[in-house]
Amino acid sequence: MGLGFRTLLYKELLRFWKVGFQTVAAPVLTAMLYLLIFSHVLEAHVKVYDEIAYTAFLVPGLIMMSVLQNAFANSSSSLIQSKVTGNIIFVLLPPLSYREFFAAYVLASVGRGLVVGGGVWLVTLWFVDLHYSHPLWILAFAILGGMMMGALGMVAGIWADKFDQLAAFQNFIIMPLTFLSGVFYSIHSLPEFWQGVSHWNPVFYLIDGFRYGFFGRGDVSPWLGLGVVALCTALFSVVTLYVLQRGYKLRG
């Protein structure tokens, strides 16, 4: 991919970095609040997998949740802002191919996800001692999760005409998927029915696989998780690429 792609990626990274207080510091703070409240309330009562303290269990979930939500927020909010203000034309007029367009937005989402996730991780170092059983799994799920949500964010950002529509997408799809994925609990503690439901949630596999990288154990095999997540990422990517190629909404 050429200079056009690299420039768009750079611009998308610079865009969130310039308002880092809002795009990085704020979500890190949010994750910290979750950590303080939930660990305070539940630490004494909950042990997961028998030997792991609840706070240690919670931290990877929070990191991953931050990666996912921020990856989604980055591509979706960039697109909707550009559409609403009209400055989307600056990226529509140049000779960028739709593949370059896609790759730049998704990678910038991964970048934002990793920066925020990394921020949460750094701050939580003060609170817990984490193990890193399989660093490659950690990295693989973080990156793949960022890609998946970055692509989904593109679909949402292209589809939505107004900020409220995007907010609805976020509140009614992204939030339930992340909160019902086992960020705050192991799904083994759920009734059987809800365990079954969780297995239809791709975010569950992301959280579980990510956690596997830390503790060396999870609710399902990380390979299964990788397969599911890769499939979902591929699906969202194909949809986004198709939409971009057809010019849906962006090139009326």
Binding site: L3, G4, L8, Y10, K11, L14, F90, V91, P94
Partner: peptide, 14 residues
């Protein structure tokens, strides 16, 4: 200037 550099980059001009 940032904007004009970025716009140049989109067109493959460094």
């Amino acid at each position: 200037r940032e904007l004009l550099r970025i716009q140049s980059g989109y067109f493959g001009i460094r």
